[in-house]
Amino acid sequence: MSDFGRLVTEQIPRLRRYARALIGAQRADDLVQDCLERAWSRQHLWDGQGDLRAWLFTILHNLYVNGVRRQASAPPFESLPEQEPPALQPSRHEAGLELRDLQRSLEQLSAEHREVVLLVGLEQLDYTEAAAVLNVPLGTVMSRLARAREALRRTLQEPPRARLRRVK
């Protein structure tokens, strides 16, 4: 395989991890596959020197954003509230947060906030890399990060029973 193919292949597990956290395991591999196809067809655009991981995350981000835009104009069944109970996750209870609910809380974030929390907190991109991937200024990354983390923390602080009662 070409160097390009080998280098991209090394990054696939991380692309998968990010995609799963972003849109769920069921759809993640389709998104990664689209990302790989696009990267493959544009390998002439990668200069061979730059950060391949950031380049791949940028492609994945662009595909994701197109998808979100599409979803915004999609048939109404997608916007109905999710009725399924979240899968039970074994969890540590730390610092008073109901971390068990993290996956669901993550889904409640806006796409912009979810991306920045995952790029920084999970993928450990530095702030400049995250700004490049998302194509926004550094200050925007910092303010989104602050809002997103605080939104997650607040959701996780709410006792789950209170949330259930509110539905009744």
């Binding site: 540590r92 947060l97 971390l99 993290l102 929390v117 995952l118 907190g121 997650l152 996780l156």
Partner: peptide, 10 residues
């Protein structure tokens, strides 16, 4: 510290 717990959980 809560933020760090969230990252660890991710």
């Amino acid at each position: 510290v809560d933020y760090q717990s969230i990252d660890a959980e991710l």
